[in-house]
Nucleic acid binder design. Structure first.
Lengths: 157, 157
DNA sequence: CCTGAATCCATTGACGCCCATATCATCCCA
DNA sequence: TGGGATGATATGGGCGTCAATGGATTCAGG
């Protein structure tokens, strides 16, 4: 298992700590570090998080632009500048910074959503409404395509 | 960790001292010196700062122009000439010069913004507005990239 | 001497690290 | 097959260390 899949909802404790779901931890463990990179999602009121693969992705995007170019500086500001490096404690927990929590309107619970090479962190209620909307879009798209794939949970292995 | 990442906001004390965030200090420590190079940013009302890698970048930028060319002289003046060498005290603090503070409109607080090989120092309120603009541009850039289906992994957002 | 600067010390609060408890799933065995 | 044992996970809390900040003391130069 080397991808972030499925969703989990966790509580924040009185110190603001939240456990990273164990399956995600095993994926992160392959990085060899106990760091979690986390930045506000550009498109959603949520957070994107992951290990070194996420960081490498960001670096690759920035490195496409020459030093001192305007595009590079702004990419770097928007991505590097907003990316927090969170330390994972011995129990597999992290503490989100205030700015991260503020962006995603997180208070006492979070929902982890696997996106393959990274995962997204939502305030649970917001995720529910977001998911409902996304489902609706997919349903309409499927309708338009005349898909016969009624069975969305079709077996994998 | 060998890169400047994330943002931190710090206060200046009555003597004008400001603590460099500890994570940045560990990056700088690899230079082996207790010096910080700092110059007004070319494009922004902010300061660029870093260790020897920042100086190497400046050198490389200047060396792209032929000796004695006008562009080279001006770049050298704009970068070398305005670069201050600040001493980091035993508590990890520096004192910004008046001209540096003036360029960035810094009074009693600063925001450190990691840009990978260097970091930028902003007056906090100015940074907030700048970041909002930068994120908007990246969002649009992402739209342009996102419309191309072959763009495999760059799902920044 | 007097002023500004550099070095040293002191306080407070946050964070890292460790240990404790509970809930739950799995496994083993009678 | 039922029930207890086992282990892992999620969560709570205590405590020591370090970072950030403020203040004092020493030093250099005019």
């Amino acid at each position: 298992m080397d991808r972030f899949v499925s969703t989990y909802t966790m509580r924040l404790d009185s110190k603001g700590r939240v456990s990273i779901p164990a399956p995600y931890r095993t994926v992160l463990a392959k990085d060899g570090t106990d760091l979690l990179y986390c930045h506000p999602s550009l498109a959603e009121p949520a957070l994107d998080a992951g290990g070194s693969r996420l960081m490498a992705e960001i670096e690759a995007l920035i490195d496409r632009y020459p030093p001192y170019s305007e595009a590079r500086e702004e990419l770097a500001a928007a991505l590097y500048g907003t990316t927090e490096t969170l330390k994972i404690d011995s129990e597999g927990r992290v503490v989100l910074t205030d700015s991260l929590k503020h962006h995603a309107a997180i208070t006492d619970q979070v929902t982890f959503v696997g996106l393959g090479h990274k995962f997204r962190i939502w305030e649970p209620e917001r995720f529910r409404t977001h998911l409902a909307e996304a489902r609706e879009k997919v349903r309409q798209l499927r309708h338009a395509l005349g898909s016969r794939a009624e069975n969305e949970g079709s077996s994998i292995g």
